[in-house]
Design a protein around this nucleic acid. Sequence first.
RNA 1: GCGUCCGUAGCUCAGGCGGAUAGAGCAGCGGUUUCCUAAACCGCGUGUCGGGGGUUCGAGUCCCUCCGGGCGCACCA
Length: 560
Amino acid sequence: MNLVQEMKARLARALTEAAASARAAGEIVYDQLPTFVLEVPREKHRGDFAANLAFLLAKEARMSPRQLAEIILRYLERPIPGVAKVEVAGPGFINFTLDGQWALPVLPAVLAEDEYYGWSDIGRGEKVQVEFVSANPTGLLHMGHARGAALGDTIANLLAATGFEVTREFYINDAGNQIENFALSLEARYLQALGIEAQVPEEGYHGYDLIDTVHRFIDQVGDKYLDADPALRREMLVRFALEEKLTAIRETLEDFGVYFDVWFSEQSLHDRGEVARTLNDLKERGYLYEKDGALWFKATLLGEEKDEVVVRQNGLPTYFAADIAYHRNKFERGFSRIINIWGADHHGHVARLKGAMAALGYDADRLEIVLMQLVRLFKGGELLRMSKRTGQYVTLEELLEEVGRDAARYFFVMIKPDSHLDFDLDLARSQTAENPVYYVQYAHARICSILRLARERGLEVPSPQEVDLRCLGHPAELELVKKIAELPETVIGAARGLEPHRLTRYAQELAALFHNFYTNCRVLADEENLRGARLILATATRITLRNVLRLLGVSAPERM
RNA sequence: GCGUCCGUAGCUCAGGCGGAUAGAGCAGCGGUUUCCUAAACCGCGUGUCGGGGGUUCGAGUCCCUCCGGGCGCACCA
């Protein structure tokens, strides 16, 4: 349990006992004590924690919250260690003001836990899978994939940091219609490259990257497939292109700091007969029927608006059919939580996929879908239009060249997934204070600089046992200590809600408090004990900042 | 039309399970450095939380409705 949790638990216990004493003394009545919360008031002057217990008791006790709060306060046993003041405030809040130094014990803990400070084990080793990006291997990665990559990877980091056993997975859509179109497009480019009139189909892939791919194919095999069986020709082209595209995707993602544990092929589901087996099971369970020569899934049986085709008239299964088989496969692999990061344009797919899982007898609540709204790129105040059709879009690779990995990752998770993201390229690439990434990284570099200077002067960071930390009494110091102590709960909250943007906010708050401390307090003070304590505080801040940045996949530079 | 997400300061956005007088950053204005990185710090905000209704001790937060915008509503994925 971390420091903040301990304090909350202590206060909650004290209040519970006070209420019980008051009831025993006949001053208040209640059947069962309602579950109340201890929250951090928005305004600092109201104290460190506020309890809403009196409001919740008011109805049953038939007394005003204010009165109740005063009675409970009378029965509250004091002193409570670490608490400086308790008072009734406003319409009936019980406010606790802590001893300003209550959080100091976090400092030795941070130094001891070092790269694991902020980590916890609330996941208890449960197996979680996070599937994200899963871009079609027919092209390059665009901004939607980039946001998904940053979000998915950070969520995976958060889950790992809170004690889950995480698998990162990329689903390769290497089967179906689009591969057919891909093949035809490649074939057209191949024939064109060999001087033969051919056209990329209307629904095909018009990007110029395919021309390059085909040229490399020709470098290897020449015109060998010019007169070959078109089916064989297309197969060879697809095999070559997929390999090349996937390699490019993997390399770009690695440049972005994203590494997958599993690359899962859709085609393999078909090859192993899992799609057929899944359809068969759905049929046995009465969820399939035939109409117009196609096979339909009875989504309406599960509250959906309309049924869905799973096998087309031409006998080929749809993407949906493969997706059902895929997600069943995930369940069969023993994950207790299955998390998908999807673009909002797929939201219509959520309910029917969950429905299909329920139809197969799985608990659909264990399948969690994080929907993220789409990304718009701005440059020079102008919206950059993107069109896959014409092959005109900014790729992740180009973005990384332009703004770098740190800014890109930070910007993509800075805003909650539900909101549209207006990505300002000029801001992200600017190396000024306007750019939040630099602000946070600068705080880290600044600390490193102090620690470097200390070393040069032969001043080592002392071990916390050798120093009396109670000399840290300046408000700037104590605010910084309190913020450091919040990290574990921030990480838990962000992991629980699958909300990485809480991390960037925390990072900015922490950096701001450090900068404030830096301006007000000289770390390398003359007095030895004070200097030691401040070196410890600076080190703890450095560790905390670095750990948050690590969760975000952003570097923590030692110099800037 | 149906579903879904969004609408909070000039701009970009936060606002755990409903809590007190709604907060940050940026932009703007004015200050701060003989001293550890000024990529910093400090000060300055009259917001119909899109409108209206409801639930309750209390609503930016929950429910209903309307308005505005994004995205879905294929035998595409």
